[in-house]
């Protein structure tokens, strides 16, 4: 479904990605793990069209995305839940959702999708007229996810959705990832919680210093000695 080939991305003179390649099949949950500053967010933002790609290819069902605008990419059904959420803090919860559903692909279902989100995330329905900035961290993350779902994505990119959340809320986010996937949406998930995310993933990539250093089935990655040492605190 999604195929990234030899991606090179730089911030000015600093090269952040050195030839990253990855593949995501329809219906998968693919997890990307790696240390802080490894290039996970850079990878996600490049795929979503927010960062300029220096070279390499990004193919969605065979169509090139690497020169497309973020809007064109959303219209093709690839949607990002960005790191740090990037909500519209002074707009109401309902307005945040409406902006999320404004893409041409989903606009005609705007009201239906809004009702569906308020049912799926009751807290968002109860506080629909409240400014998004007044929500707690966990609620804001729910809103960021719901906002992305408003555009009826086929493939959802989630960049550290559990960052800064309690273990309980983190578990809820993970359950939600599985629900979203069960709805038929392909998921690419960047996570710090390596163990938990590998439990629900089909496959995983490990990124270090702008390169893919390890890839494979989730269980295989989980059992890999380097991963155990680096992320799981096991000898």
């Amino acid at each position: 479904m999604l195929s990234v080939r030899d991606l090179n991305v730089a911030y000015g003179d600093f090269i952040a990605l050195h030839g990253v390649s990855l593949d995501v099949d329809e219906g998968e949950i693919v997890v990307i793990v790696g240390a802080n500053g490894a290039g996970k967010t850079t990878t996600m933002n490049s795929i979503a069209g927010i960062l300029h790609v220096r070279s390499g290819e990004i193919l969605l069902d065979g169509e090139h995305l690497e020169r497309k605008s973020p809007r064109e990419i959303v219209e093709r059904g690839l949607v990002l839940v960005p790191e740090g959420r990037h909500l519209f803090p002074e707009m109401t919860i309902q307005e945040n959702l409406l902006v999320g559903g404004q893409a041409a692909r989903s606009r005609r279902n705007l009201r239906v999708n809004l009702a569906a989100m308020e049912e799926r995330f009751p807290i968002l329905g109860q506080r629909r007229s409240q400014a998004a900035g007044t929500l707690s961290g966990g609620e804001q993350q729910m809103l960021a996810i719901a906002r992305a779902l408003m555009s009826e994505p086929r493939i959802l990119l989630m960049d550290e959705p559990s960052i800064g959340l309690s273990p309980l809320l983190t578990a809820r986010i993970f359950a939600m990832v599985q629900e979203i996937n069960a709805m038929g949406i392909t998921v690419v998930l960047v996570e710090q919680n390596v163990v938990q995310s590998l439990e629900l993933a089909t496959r995983a990539y490990v990124i270090a210093e702008g390169r893919v250093v390890l890839q494979g089935g989730a269980a295989e990655i989980r059992g890999h000695a380097d991963v155990k040492r680096a992320y799981l605190g096991e000898a």
Partner: peptide, 23 residues
């Protein structure tokens, strides 16, 4: 919808881009 896009872009450009707003 245009008004919401204007306010969204004022408040968070990255968020607007992620939503597919034609910034």
């Amino acid at each position: 919808a245009l008004g919401r896009s204007i306010r969204a872009t004022s408040q968070n450009v990255q968020g607007a881009l992620a939503c597919g707003v034609d910034v």
